[in-house]
């Protein structure tokens, strides 16, 4: 069993034009910076990207948008990116807006082998248009289908060579569910250690879900809204 790869370029080997990707992160927090850089360098096109947000101009998925690598985004909130807006309004980019909790659960379900689930979220709104609805115990629900991906690209704080992952702070967000929903899950970590060095009690994502892992470099960890108290 060899999951450790040298770098992001090696980790995304086999990622081809037209594939569906999941990218962890909330805003710019906990995004797979190294994998995004490698994708920008490799230049795959027509990608469908499942990610809560779409980065900002010049960082995160924003870098992939600038190179027109993204055909479709599946996200809950995309408001921080002028290039995104331009491509959307010109029709170059397709967007499927999904309520944040539904998006998280779609990814969770995808990794858990559950094909669809009922949720009250979005009932009676345009999100429910064209979807099956059902009354259960007197309340109306919308049927939402699970999501999976050809590649899931996640970022963790620490990982071991067996693929076990630990996250830090709110950088966990979508990463654990996406790690479970990728056919090939690539984890980039700030610290890569040997088996036994991570306390099994503290593992957030067991290694069974992770196919490739590498130690990332040069993390920028850009902050969108640096807010301090005096």
């Amino acid at each position: 069993m060899k999951k450790v790869v040298k770098n992001a370029t090696e980790a995304i080997k086999g990622l081809e034009n037209g594939m569906t990707l999941m990218l962890g992160g909330f805003g710019l927090c906990g995004i797979p910076e190294n994998c995004i850089s490698a994708l920008v360098k490799a230049g795959q096109k027509n990608l469908t990207c499942i990610s809560n947000n779409a980065g900002v101009d010049g960082f995160g998925i924003g870098l992939m948008l600038e190179q027109r690598q993204v055909k479709k985004m599946i996200s809950s909130y995309v408001g921080e990116n002028a290039e995104f807006e331009r491509q959307l309004l010109s029709g170059e980019l397709e967007v499927e807006l999904t309520p944040q909790g539904t998006l998280a659960e779609k990814c969770r379900a995808g990794g858990a082998g559950i094909p669809a689930f009922f949720t009250a979220t979005g009932y009676g709104t345009e999100v429910a248009e064209g979807k099956e609805t059902r009354e259960i115990n007197g309340r109306m629900y919308v049927l939402e289908e699970a999501l999976t991906a050809d590649f899931a690209l996640v970022k963790a704080w620490k990982g071991d060579t067996m693929g076990n992952l630990i996250f830090k702070g709110t950088a966990r967000n979508f990463n654990p569910m996406m790690a479970r929903a990728g056919k090939i899950t690539v984890a980039e970590v700030e610290e890569l250690v040997e088996p036994g060095e991570l306390d099994p009690n503290h593992i957030h994502v067991p290694g069974i879900y992770v196919q490739r892992i590498f130690k990332g470099t040069d993390y920028e960890k850009r902050i969108e809204q640096r807010t301090v108290s005096k």
């Binding site: 809950s76 909130y77 807006l97 309520p99 944040q100 909790g101 949720t119």
Partner: peptide, 13 residues
């Protein structure tokens, strides 16, 4: 320009 609903639909439901 639509930015998205974020978590609002989940919160109200």
């Amino acid at each position: 320009m639509v930015k998205g609903m974020g978590g609002a639909m989940d919160l109200v439901a």
